[in-house]
Nucleic acid binder design. Sequence first.
DNA 1: GCAATGTTGTCCCACTTTTGTCCAGACAAA
DNA 2: TTTGTCTGGACAAAAGTGGGACAACATTGC
Lengths: 335, 335
Amino acid sequence: MATLETISSIDTAPRHPIRLVANRTGLTVDLIRAWEKRYHVVEPARSDTKRRLYSDYDIERLRMIRIAKQNGRRLVDVAPMSLEALRDVVSEDSRFDAAQDNPAEVYRPSWSNPLESTDTQDAVDAMLFAIQTMDQHRFDQLLQEGLVKQALPAYLETVIGPLLREIGESTRLGKLRIAHEHMATAHLRTFIGALRFRETFTGSEPKIIITTPTGQLHELGALMIAALVSVDGWLPVYLGPNTPADEIAACAMQSGARAVSLSLTYPADDPRIPTELTRLRSQLDQKIPLFVGGSAAAHHRQLIGRLGLQSPPSLNELRQTLNELRDRGFRLQSA
Amino acid sequence: MATLETISSIDTAPRHPIRLVANRTGLTVDLIRAWEKRYHVVEPARSDTKRRLYSDYDIERLRMIRIAKQNGRRLVDVAPMSLEALRDVVSEDSRFDAAQDNPAEVYRPSWSNPLESTDTQDAVDAMLFAIQTMDQHRFDQLLQEGLVKQALPAYLETVIGPLLREIGESTRLGKLRIAHEHMATAHLRTFIGALRFRETFTGSEPKIIITTPTGQLHELGALMIAALVSVDGWLPVYLGPNTPADEIAACAMQSGARAVSLSLTYPADDPRIPTELTRLRSQLDQKIPLFVGGSAAAHHRQLIGRLGLQSPPSLNELRQTLNELRDRGFRLQSA
DNA sequence: GCAATGTTGTCCCACTTTTGTCCAGACAAA
DNA sequence: TTTGTCTGGACAAAAGTGGGACAACATTGC
């Protein structure tokens, strides 16, 4: 389907000025130039007046290089690597860093399976099969492999999201037992949660509160958002599921968050939702946008409109909106 | 064993700078050099400017040596050993370690002993402060650091457990907001969940179902058990919280589990607990022991006795019992 | 039980390499 | 005009290197 184009195809059109790159990567302008001068880390295109113009691909590479350096890599080593290679290196490092205290061998040998599933549907099916047979190890393996093949946002959208829907559907139809669903959910909780730690933070990222309101116990959607925005230079303040409106507002205040995002899935028609949303909107600073997403958001369209909440129809549009918000924030800050 | 193939597959190409090695092994840069100077523990290749360059093989050896030392081995003894020999030594030690009747008397040099109680109290306090200030990054950092200082079982018992109690208590007393508790819980969920991934499995481990019964929504206790037993050579089948008795039984059947462990925390007097436990016990093969733990287990002592369930009073005793069960199982299997 | 000896983690030094930051003067954009 | 970017170079902080010192602790021999 149309979703396939989004996979791993990061835009290589040169359009971003160096300042924006610095903001998004957490590097300084000077440093980006120094890296270019010394190691040709990136060779951006130029405008007709010799201004550097970076592509999304360049930005992503710089982000990865910064993380690789933090993991102890030398600039000389990582500078010539492709984005894919960098991703491998970084994910390898983050898997192995911090000391182990257990004798079990650490290297997951790539006695990897011949099961090459390039299509995302195949990947989802393979995962469903692993769940059905309660093969947790295989499930983990599949989750990890998938992550290497594409960038995180695309992965969440094309694999994890559909997988969640299929698990729900299969359980409803009796093709999976509740126990299977539980196991899969618990595993995904761990897996997605760990994704946030792959990013490193500079401390200058704007914060966004992410949670679900009272009565909404399913947290995976919210957790996906947290992982997603951390890639885009936000610092997610993740509160888990089922947080009362008052607490969300207080937390936004204390942490100085620039945005709040809620995920609604089940039950879709919980009567507490309108109350909680209204309450939260009124307690929150008007300048802080409140995003509402998840499969149950559609049930509350009117309410969302009335309260002036944001409800982007897809993860991509959410990213889009947040990116604009973040960059606007930078401009305001520096002015 | 099958491990031999994986060993030979470890890359011996020198490419990692010393800093990265330090990150991955949990050793300090100074220490790595000191070991080289004194015992030629590793003799890394050099770059053209004399910088040390380590291979994956070197890193793996260093990691093993660190663990061997933690188990009480002397550096002089292990320094000249091959990776294969190191693995043998380490796995032997860890089995011996786990089989000890009295963990307090395990021979260990003082510098690897469980931390002083003041240290652990300090660690817990620091974490609480991070939670209070909503400093997620610091919280993660503290959690990771703690893991380097102690072996996992000791860490869970002396730091994570007390931390959970303090969080609960502080929230009850109003010293922490619900939002703080939520954030901390979500973080701990991710952190403890990720611990399981540090283990690699051979496929021959006995399985143990770990979950909480219907109505018990707090999963951290269960998750700690899952992390703990995976160190001792069990394969946890983790189902998350709130699993109905029928599903647990079905899951035990399908996966061929050798044991089931439930965690009870809150609400302690949920009327569903007796029903569910009784139901589960009756549906489960009599040969499969059913463990019940958690702070609320004490409220159901009579029930536990009547149903013939196991309820070890501490994590250590749980390990003990499980180790015996595992080894008995091995003997049965091989006979 | 005690002194002598061995082991081991940490720290300091002087020196080199690597890496991040800053500056100046020219030019472009707002 | 003001602000930002460009180039090239200078400078300083950070990190790595070899060597050695030292304190804490364990082990050994008496």
